[in-house]
Amino acid sequence: MFPNKFDYVRATSVAEAIDLLEEYADADTEILAGGHSLLPTIKSGLASPEVVVDISGLDELAGLEIGPETTTFGATTTYADVLHTDGVYDAVPDVAETVEVIGDRQVRNAGTMGGNLAHADPASDLPAVVVAADATIQIQGPDGERAVPASEFFIAMYTTDLGPSELITAIEVPNVGDDEGATYVKKKSPSSGYAMVGVAARLRTDGDSIEAARLAANGAFDHAQRLEAAEDALVGATVTDDLAATAAGAATDGVEEWELMDDIQVSSDFRGQLLEVYTERAIQQALDRVGVAVSA
């Protein structure tokens, strides 16, 4: 990699990190955690920061805690850490399953939960699952702390609700209940490992009908978003063998072709097709999972 020259500073606390971001607010400043979103972007020549603030060493932001209702991931928790934590498949199987399919082993050893969400690559995997899980993004900045629901956090390609000198500190994900099924299914690009389409589903059912449904997709649009038409087709519906297919058919309702991503591997109309296929798979898998333990 041969980037343009940049200044590098290492933060020793979250407060200091925020101060540094403020101090360098006039320059093109980027945060470095695991580097597996930032560095490929710099390598490709698309990003050229003037200042890099390294937060990878901040213990305050590392680690995850599985509580009785919620699992909280520190922003700099690596994917590998997530997968090696006992109980994560029980508490939040959809998150664990997503992390499992991100990149490859080397990427998972370095990349972080917070970094992935803050970078908001349209084809990354975590955004969909945190949206479907109705997670909360904890943010800290010069004006203090605030919390944003995941479904409001992703605004557009590479654009989130984060303000200029703010950083993600943690992600709180509600645990999956016994009456819920949760999953993430993904069609991996054979070259990049990113999601050509990835669909996350959380469903709650009493066995006969669907009480609640949250579906979200990434890879399909320029940011992770809920598949509301498909959700509507599920809520209140009776659970049958056809339900997944019927509801998935609604995934592209109201979606204009120009809204779907278009690149050399997948054109926008095929992406619409993949979105339906993977929505069906996600719904079916979530239904099959209700009350069933998931393992690695």
């Binding site: 490709s44 020549g45 698309l46 349209p122 390609m157 990113y194 120009w258 278009d262 690149d263």
Partner: peptide, 16 residues
């Protein structure tokens, strides 16, 4: 380079 390296995101970026 932008076209070569950024094909995945070029069109949406230009669009934006």
């Amino acid at each position: 380079r932008v076209a070569q390296m950024g094909q995945r995101v070029m069109n949406p970026v230009a669009n934006r």
